[in-house]
């Protein structure tokens, strides 16, 4: 949601009381819940739904917002992240939207949230039973890039005709010597449907496997919902001689010293200075609050030793 639309809503203060709980009318929510239930019953299968206009442009997570709006209740606590961060415009806007439209509590702490809406990441802290993670999905069809015909891809899913998916991975290896797909890395859900995990880094793929949390995926523009129920097998596609691997980082987070986490590169100056920091801002802050330090923490620069120095630099 752009700040302009927020202001528009603000301007209609008087009318706000007329909005239904969580913005969508009850009939629409029921329709979306039916799609979600069907998705849960057929893990990884793309369920069509009648996507509604939302007060934000496509590409801002209208699919995810509709899913969240349909499942959220007054007792829920909502966390919204974009690329792992709670404080980006997109995340702030969506959080504000639900704070206003559903009067729910919001949080930045992964463990406190009952519903987490996300774009491009799964939190580092393992999700637990009872939590729901809602993904914003731009393109739900993993076969799209090689077979543009929707009639054909639907048939391919129906009869499990998935040779094409490996053609893409084969081409990666033939051209680059390894599977070069780093985001939206295709997975097979419960041994049946091939699914696009949305543009999360493949680093997050293992977190989908047998996750305790319910995973819901909403594609607004393409009008598709799909789901992975808790404790479901999710396997990343690969070849026997080129097994699936997650991204590896050479050094720990410069702020909290965290290893085995997904790092973002941050440019510090125009002299080529850069650092790597946790993409999950809540995780990083939490570690720092518990006394962990990275190589660029202020007190480390003053001479103390960083976590990463003790733990070595291999991620």
């Amino acid at each position: 949601m752009t700040s302009a639309t927020l202001h528009d809503i603000e301007a209609q203060q008087g009318a706000i009381a007329d909005y239904n709980f969580a913005y969508l009318d009850e009939q629409t929510k029921r329709m979306i819940r039916r799609a979600i239930l069907k998705g849960i019953a057929i893990p990884g299968y793309q369920v069509p739904f009648a996507s509604r206009e939302m007060p934000m442009p496509y590409g801002w997570g209208t699919g995810g917002v509709q899913v969240t709006a349909s499942i959220i209740g007054p007792d829920d606590t909502l966390k919204v992240i974009d690329q792992g961060a709670d404080d980006t415009t997109n995340a702030v806007s969506i959080r504000a939207f639900f704070a206003r439209m559903a009067k729910v509590r919001t949080t930045t702490h992964t463990a406190e949230a009952t519903v987490i809406q996300t774009r491009h990441r799964i939190p580092e802290e393992p999700l637990h039973e009872g939590q729901v993670i809602v993904f914003q999905v731009p393109i739900p069809e993993p076969l799209r890039f090689l077979e543009p015909r929707e009639t054909e891809t639907r048939k391919m899913h129906a009869v499990e005709d998935y040779g094409l998916m490996h053609v893409k991975l084969y081409e990666d290896i033939a051209q680059k010597g390894h599977i070069a797909t780093n985001y939206a890395y295709p997975v097979k859900v419960k041994g049946r449907y091939i699914m696009d995990p949305s543009p999360t880094p493949k680093f997050d793929n293992p977190k989908m496997h047998r996750s305790e949390a319910l995973q819901l995926y909403g594609a607004g523009r393409e009008m598709r919902i799909y789901a992975i129920p808790p404790y479901t097998d999710v396997v990343s596609l690969d070849f026997e001689d080129y097994p699936f691997e997650i991204q590896h980082f050479e050094e720990p987070c410069a702020l909290c010293g965290g290893t085995d986490v997904f790092l973002d590169e941050v440019i510090l100056d125009d002299q080529g200075g850069r650092m790597f920091v946790c993409s999950d801002s809540d995780y990083c802050e939490d570690r720092r609050a518990h006394g962990h330090r990275g190589s660029l923490s202020p007190d480390i620069l003053d001479g103390a030793s960083a976590d990463g120095d003790k733990e070595g630099t291999e991620a």
């Binding site: 005709d161 040779g163 490996h166 084969y170 070849f239």
Partner: peptide, 21 residues
């Protein structure tokens, strides 16, 4: 739009062959 190798290999992958080499 995919290589000759992938064109020939597709059917093998479709019947479950999973060894790139």
């Amino acid at each position: 739009t995919v290589s000759a190798g992938a064109n020939v290999g597709e059917r093998l992958m479709a019947i479950g062959k999973r060894h790139y080499g």
